[in-house]
């Protein structure tokens, strides 16, 4: 007998789905702000800082890029209380996701900074631009333009990766879905709804990133970097 789809019991709990989606946005939003802050500090530390700092950042990046987010989450949530640091599920999730994103964004931002030749900065200063203007127009905006696809792709992966936080029952969409599934017993319908919500959120954010990009890079584009660089960035991204 064929399985009859029935979305009614799941739809009856639509407010829970909406709340879960909102919590996912809040959770990943907090993690993204913290993660990007770590990324900026890490990238500047690695390119401009003293040698030992660059080494330390490098070790951090490799450690977090070569272990799964789920294990990092378990280590922070279950492991840290063992050495006396007790965190709520949400706090542990935010810290784990932020540290993970921090490692990836350090590498992405560093690639951007290193793509700006020193001579460009000197040329800017020679034209009588102030230091602040040079940083803004010669370093940040052109660097951001180069890494924009990789960076926004990583942010999307972070939003989707936050579903992992359901493993420690943080309040977000996948955990809300698991709760709905256990009350309705409509597994397939529940997770299809959840998938549709994640897809809608992802496409909405891609659109927002695209709009921000239009505004940010409204000046004429320099020659496009090679496609090979794009491909390289795609493979580096990950959760």
């Amino acid at each position: 007998m064929a399985y009859q789809m029935n979305f009614a019991p799941v739809m009856a709990l639509a407010p829970q789905l909406a709340e879960g989606a909102l919590n996912t946005l809040i959770l990943s939003g907090q993690a993204i702000v913290a993660g990007l802050a770590i990324g900026v500090v890490g990238a500047v530390g690695r390119t401009e800082g003293p040698r030992w700092l660059g080494r330390a950042v490098g070790v951090y990046v490799e450690l977090f890029r070569n272990t799964p987010l789920l294990v990092q989450l378990f280590l922070i949530f279950f492991g840290l209380p063992y050495i006396g640091v007790r965190l709520s599920a949400n706090a542990a999730a935010i810290i784990a996701i932020a540290l993970n994103l921090g490692a990836y964004s350090t590498e992405i931002l560093r690639a951007g900074l290193q793509a700006i030749p020193r001579t460009q900065i000197e040329a800017g200063l020679a034209l009588g631009m102030s230091r602040l203007q040079v940083v803004r127009y010669v370093v940040i905006v052109p660097a951001l333009r180069i890494i924009y696809p990789a960076l926004t792709g990583q942010l999307t992966l972070t939003l989707l990766g936050s579903s992992i936080a359901s493993a420690i029952s943080a309040t977000e969409l996948t955990a809300a879905g698991a709760r709905i599934e256990s009350t309705t017993f409509r597994s397939l319908e529940t997770f299809l709804c959840i998938a549709v919500i994640y897809i809608a959120m992802t496409f909405t954010f891609r659109f927002i990133y695209w709009l921000i990009g239009l505004w940010l890079f409204r000046r004429k584009a320099p020659p496009k970097p090679s496609l090979i660089a794009d491909v390289t960035e795609v493979s580096r991204a990950g959760a």
Binding site: Y3, T156, L160, T174, G177, L188, L192, A195, F203
Partner: peptide, 23 residues
Amino acid sequence: QLVQATPLLIIVFLTFYGLSFVG
């Protein structure tokens, strides 16, 4: 596009719980 916009965990759940219901 669709797969890249869905969390891996949800794909795993859909496969594991969902398909067993379909038969």
